[in-house]
């Protein structure tokens, strides 16, 4: 919510044995987690109910439509989930532009020159020519995920609404643009689906580093070890700030 968020450290839980003596770093607020959960739910429903119509001749298309309870039900699910996603997008914009008091320029999510450097260093790292880049709060992959989803949401919500209310839209735009909406909607949806299922799920689920999954999407917390490994710059920043404010807290508990 504010820049102070990054130095929030949860008190070690005394009651739970498993968490005894471990320090957690707050990564996402409950608000952000909740947005992500709604996004997951609506996205899955939209993919399942939408893809049979993108590929109507595939053998699995009628199978999925029947599993969903027929074509009318498929359409109903798609529209309901789509409208929820539109509401989520509006909420996201409204909240993070108007409600969140953190100054827009201070947000860590904007792409920077360091991201371009990190990107090149990552490729070099993959070929064994460099060290792994040290990331701050968000790595370039996470920023790409976010802005990719942002672009996708804008495209899909606008074209989706045009197709949901075609005759309202046609009072403003020609019918040809409704047809173009269909092309944009389905192609962008395919891109988003492939990206989420291949790239995003690799980063947060399948990668040997985090397998079976990174629990940050459920708890909003990162462990100290994860923090040191995945966001070393942010970790150092937090430690420095803590020392500056005079809060002496042992980091190697």
């Amino acid at each position: 919510m504010s820049s102070q968020r990054s130095i929030e450290i949860l008190e070690p839980k005394i009651t739970g044995d498993r968490n005894m003596g471990e320090t957690f770093f707050k990564r996402f607020t409950f608000n952000q987690l909740f947005q992500h959960w709604v996004m997951i739910g609506t996205f899955m429903l939209l993919v399942i109910s939408g893809m049979p119509l993108k590929f109507p001749d595939a053998w699995w298309s009628p199978v999925i439509i029947n599993l969903l309870g027929g074509f009318a039900m498929r359409t109903y699910i798609h529209h309901a989930a789509g409208l929820t996603m539109v509401a989520l997008g509006v909420y996201h914009i409204v909240f993070h532009v108007f409600v969140d008091k953190e100054s827009m320029l201070d947000r860590k999510v904007w792409p920077t020159i360091k991201d371009a450097k990190d990107f090149w260093q990552t490729i070099m790292f993959y070929f064994g020519k460099a060290e792994e880049p040290k990331y701050g709060r968000y790595s370039w992959k996470e920023k790409f995920d976010y802005w990719g989803a942002f672009w996708g949401m804008v495209m899909l919500c606008v074209t989706g609404l045009v197709m949901l209310f075609p005759f309202k839209a046609m009072e403003v735009i020609p019918y040809a643009y409704v047809q173009l909406s269909l092309i944009i909607h389905t192609d962008e949806a395919l891109l988003a689906t492939l990206f989420i299922f291949i790239v995003h799920w690799w980063n947060v689920h399948y990668s040997p580093e985090v397998f079976p999954m990174s629990k940050a999407w459920l708890t909003g917390n990162l462990s100290e070890e994860q923090m040191k490994h995945e966001h070393p710059l942010e970790y150092e920043e937090i430690m420095r700030q803590m020392n500056d404010t005079g809060e002496k807290r042992s980091s190697g508990r």
Partner: peptide, 26 residues
């Protein structure tokens, strides 16, 4: 527009799928 999305999808997914493979091997 169809061509644009064909190129975009192939490029983005192709690139990042390559990254996933490289990531795995690294």
């Amino acid at each position: 527009i169809a061509i644009f999305f064909k190129i975009l999808t192939t490029a983005v997914i192709g690139f990042f799928a390559g990254m996933v493979v490289l990531d795995f091997f690294s």
